[in-house]
């Protein structure tokens, strides 16, 4: 058995969720690591799109920002940002959107705006960026987030981007035709929405993780599926590719000009 960290399991589980024929809108950080790991392992033809306008990009190192030169140089083409949001995202050309956030609730609504009241914030977060429209325009949404009571909360301080809203058919009733969050990948487990209630439900626990651990790191009573699987551990190959990717990236980002 290979030794690995919970964060590595999370990134690898997220990468596995992507398919070779996916067209994926990628955010910076963990989504970018997962999407590129997928591309470097089982999904070599996956189309990765970053909101800076780079279509079908194949970066050798992970970008620190959403518009690093690396993304543009390895892309099929780079379009202006208004075109990115109008033709490609709003136009319905993107199958999977990858999101994260500071807070999530049980219906996978996300907050990346503010902790505390909007007018008197305890912590002012960066804001929505592309998320509000990614959440409704991509065919489906994968969310990757490490679990903890401060981030997996019963009630969001602010809804930046919607998931399944208040559950059931509430998302569809808003006129949204896309699926919304179909997978939530954490450092402990894999969640999928319940078919009826749309509450994010544990369908797989990562190796060695208990139900109590998941509950202790979640701010609402966690639902578990009738059959809870065990996530297959990372393979030696997955770990090797992920670690090499991070090592290359760290070297590139610490070079001074």
């Amino acid at each position: 058995m290979v030794d690995y960290k919970p964060n590595e399991m999370m990134t690898i589980a997220a990468a596995r969720a992507l398919k070779n024929d996916d067209v994926c809108f990628v955010g910076i950080g963990m989504p970018s690591a997962a999407a590129n790991l997928a591309r470097l392992t089982h999904a070599p033809d996956i189309v990765l799109i970053y909101e800076s306008g780079t279509l079908a990009t194949k970066p050798n190192v992970l970008p620190l920002s959403i518009g690093d030169g690396e993304l543009c140089e390895t892309a099929l083409t780079t379009v202006p940002v208004p075109e990115m949001f109008r033709y490609w995202l709003q136009g319905g050309r993107i199958k999977v959107g990858f999101l994260g956030g500071a807070q999530i609730d049980k219906y996978a609504n996300l907050n990346t705006t503010v902790v505390g009241p909007y007018d008197k914030p305890k912590v002012r977060l960066p804001g929505g960026g592309g998320a509000p429209e990614i959440a409704t325009s991509c065919g489906e949404i994968f969310i990757i987030m490490a679990q903890g009571k401060r981030s997996f909360v019963d009630r969001l301080d602010f809804v930046t981007s919607i998931g399944h809203v208040s559950g059931g058919d509430s998302r569809a009733r808003l006129g949204v035709k896309t699926k919304g969050p179909t997978k939530l990948i954490t450092d402990l487990a894999l969640f999928e929405p319940d078919a009826q209630s749309k509450e994010m439900t544990v369908v797989s626990l990562h190796p060695g993780v208990t139900r109590e651990q998941v509950q202790d790191n979640t701010g609402w009573p966690v639902k578990f599926a009738a059959q809870v699987a065990e996530t297959p551990p990372p393979t030696a190959r997955e770990l090797e590719v992920l670690r090499e990717l991070h090592a290359r990236t760290n070297r590139a980002h610490s070079e001074a000009a």
């Binding site: 109008r86 709003q90 929505g128 509000p132 930046t160 998302r171």
Partner: peptide
Amino acid sequence: IFRGYIGGDM
């Protein structure tokens, strides 16, 4: 005019 801001608090 665009398709956006659906359902959130913004």
